[in-house]
Design a protein around this nucleic acid. Structure first.
Lengths: 241, 241
DNA sequence: TCAAAAGTGTTATGATTACACCCATGA
DNA sequence: TCATGGGTGTAATCATAACACTTTTGA
């Protein structure tokens, strides 16, 4: 599928079944947390009437493809990564959201661990960029609305399930985790209280490793203990701070 | 729009722009709480290959109509009620969810106060029925999945915003409210603790009225105080029990 | 030895839980 | 007077918030 999402060359009803769905698309907020900064990936539109403007990456859905699979395919094409954490936000259906015809879009968000990610896998530097979540610019179409809804959805999710781990490397320090929560939720938390609360949950396991090459006391490294999470998942967690 | 949602007489691409979107629909869980019972509205399909089976009410989206407006229109046609509480759940996009072609559906749920609702406004008795949420039967297509997702969405919503009031009449007793929470969340709560917690929130106002015609001590009637809610809404509520 | 971040301890306050108990009303 | 639901009180326990404090490390 080489066609740009935003270039409609024929009217939707001329498209054949064997191609893609003609009036519905996917748009995706890809979040990352790199060097303590919470960011989203934007792409520059290379074709169509809004050429050069920035928006969220998106694409069409193939006729016999699950919408979740379409989002995963899009993500893999863009980043080269498989098995990314992905969640649907909702459908956006203002009839005027897209100027060239009636197109409903389904918003998704993805959480990637930018450690093993190379933006050039999908794009050259001029076509994609990371921007800080709290410094979002004006985006094409209704993409600011999609971004806001995705962020809100992630904030709610992160408060009741240990979702944030998907943004961190396998091993991380407690203060990295704390910084992550602070930035996603846009709050300040007390270090001591954060430690106590998180450690009490038994979701983290130590393996004796410590930070290396830092010019201060080396912090213990933790990893997320999925097994105890699944045991406790029924009860309903509360990650509020 | 007289066409049944589930009867596709022409292939989607033959439909004209001036009609409806051809590969996307709305399905809606309509919840009510009547005589202490938490229920959903099911309709019997009158046309198409699955004639006679039960499912959620649904319909097409017009070409120049917002999806939320489509859901509202559907709801009004069905119930005769305007300004119903309505929320989108998500899109459902399994390519095999609908046997006659590729149709993605957007799930919504509505909360109605069955006091001022007459099911016959939209349907005759043989075409629609209320079923208890905890006694759900097998439904057509993927409607069980849509129902489960809607219920979960409502459960989450009700825990962090005073949403449940939409299911109650304007004036209600504390124990009716408690019964509602118990049924939506499928939990048991302590009467005394429920009272204390809810009253401390200042979301309820008394107006001196009491129950009438009951064969036990008459309970005070409360109503939801929207103004204090909006003052406090920033802080983020916690309705967990 | 100093800065910088890691990590610990303490206390007041408030929320939650699990009870037992009393009250008002119509049948 | 009794059944039925309405409504109150209390004490133990647990969670949270706001602090001050100590430890380790490389430069």
């Amino acid at each position: 599928m080489k066609k740009s999402k935003y270039l409609i060359s024929k009217s939707p009803s001329e498209l054949k079944k064997s191609e893609v769905m003609d009036s519905i698309t996917i748009d995706c907020c890809i979040f990352s947390f790199e060097k303590g900064e919470f960011k989203v990936l934007l792409v520059q539109h290379g074709e169509g009437i809004r050429k050069g403007e920035w928006g969220l990456p998106g694409g069409w859905i193939e006729y016999d493809e699950h919408i979740d699979d379409a989002a995963n395919r899009l993500l893999e094409n863009l980043t080269g990564l498989k098995d990314i954490y992905l969640e649907q936000v909702k459908a956006f259906g203002d009839p005027n959201r897209f100027p060239l015809g009636r197109v409903i879009t389904i918003g998704y968000y993805a959480l990637i661990n930018s450690e093993n990610f190379d933006i050039k896998a999908g794009f050259t530097a001029s076509e994609a960029k990371w921007v800080k979540v709290n410094e979002m610019q004006n985006l094409i179409y209704d993409h600011n609305e999609i971004f806001e809804a995705s962020l809100k959805h992630l904030q709610e999710k992160v408060k009741r399930a240990p979702t944030g781990f998907n943004l961190l490397p396998d091993k991380f320090t407690l203060l990295q985790l704390m910084e992550l929560y602070q930035q996603i939720l846009d709050i300040e938390v007390d270090k001591s209280n954060f430690r106590r609360k998180f450690l009490k949950m038994k979701l983290l396991k130590e393996n004796g490793d410590k930070q290396e090459g830092v010019s201060h006391r080396a912090a213990k490294l933790y990893s997320f203990d999925e097994s105890t999470y699944h045991q406790l998942t029924k009860k309903g967690f509360n990650f509020e701070f």
